[in-house]
Design a protein around this nucleic acid. Structure first.
Lengths: 208, 208
DNA sequence: ACAAATTTAGACACCCTTGTCCAATTCGTC
DNA sequence: GACGAATTGGACAAGGGTGTCTAAATTTGT
């Protein structure tokens, strides 16, 4: 296990102040001196950990967004699959949980570092997801007012049942992830699936 | 400012390990010895802080739930008002933000303490809210399958736009709270408002 | 006003952590 | 096998934090 990986675990478990370089070195299987040789000091190591987690998480999130069902066969099933993949691979993963906890615990102490995360992570994620939902709406599968709002609400809904587990640092079971995603997507589609409207008000849809 | 109030602030800002008794004493305006006289040691003080926050937050949440619109005149407007009150008074309040952060940061270190919080807080909150939604459904205002799921999704939706701000420890503006609540309630009602057709899965219109 | 209880400031021992230095050892590569 | 680079363990100083103690000052109750 690399030094930054071990450091990520210890920083998460103990907090920045409580993290102990000797323990990080021990968990990484190297001597303390090697930690200092590689990363300078505790603060630089912490920054390296956050950057590493941010980069890996973002990569995973964008890889997952690339699997968004642009041409769904069964919209509900496809969205559930997508939501489960997002939750399992990005939100519940080791990296995802660690990054979230570090941001919550130490975000205020490193404004520039976490501003960078915010803009490159959630900022782009939401935009990308909103674009996919907008496309689904344009293709006539959904009826969406503001795609950005819909994207945020989609993520909020499919995570609704996992909040408490996340709060306490736990990892939801596969069943919980499935359950939360299914319930979330069902409600999402109840809200945003194209509705039958009064005959005169039926919007004209582009056939593309 | 009391010792526990000062301690809550310092524990939140600095984390448990980073919190410094001298600083807590200074912020509370007492001597360090008085802190030790009152609370024994750092760990006991921390437990006292969490218990205090939990109790006050729970009281606030139940007081707010008591204002749930059981006989709505304008369901959308009434639910938005309720959601704003919940967010402003319980979720965004000093106590709410502090308790959330302490749970996230130190929850794993004190399992029994936070198990207690979980059962007395979110556990009862969700039940109480679910009961209110069930009553609204019975009165014909909503079409709800599982009231527990609806309650969790309601809370998730009205908070959807505030997540990032919470992550970084910030306090949303009144406008942001209003905006998030309005969007969340609109989607919630789109999903759960009583439909003409019998409750059930709505067919997704595939525009072939 | 007086006595008891509380609070205070300061000093103190003890422990832990960070970060540096260095000599010995191991590793990688030719 | 040999040589340079990296790693290791251990010692070390400096700093900071916890928790205790004590004598003086202050508040409180009567």
């Amino acid at each position: 296990m690399s030094v930054v990986d071990a450091a990520a675990g210890v920083f998460c478990r103990e907090g920045y102040a409580g993290a102990n370089i000797d323990l990080i070195a021990a968990e990484a299987g190297v001597s303390r001196q090697t930690v200092y040789n590689h990363h300078g000091d505790k603060e630089k190591l912490f920054v390296a950990v956050v950057r590493d987690l941010t980069e890996r998480c973002n990569a995973g999130i964008f890889a997952t967004i690339a699997t968004f069902p642009d041409q769904p066969t069964d919209l509900e099933a496809d969205l559930i699959t997508f939501a489960v993949r997002m939750n399992r691979n990005c939100i519940c993963s080791r990296d995802g949980r660690f990054l979230r906890k570090l941001i919550q615990a130490e975000g205020e102490r490193y404004p520039e570092l976490f501003a960078e995360w915010r803009e490159r992570g959630p900022g782009r994620t939401w935009s990308a997801l909103a674009a996919r939902f907008a496309r689904l709406a344009l293709a006539g599968h959904l009826s969406i007012g503001d795609p950005d709002v819909a994207a945020r609400q989609f993520l909020a809904l499919v995570n609704a049942e996992l909040q408490i587990t996340f709060m306490l640092g736990g990892t939801p079971t596969e069943e919980e992830v499935q359950h939360s995603a299914s319930n979330g997507v069902r409600t999402f589609l109840n809200a945003f699936a194209r509705k039958k409207q009064p005959a005169g008000k039926q919007p004209v849809l582009a056939h593309a």
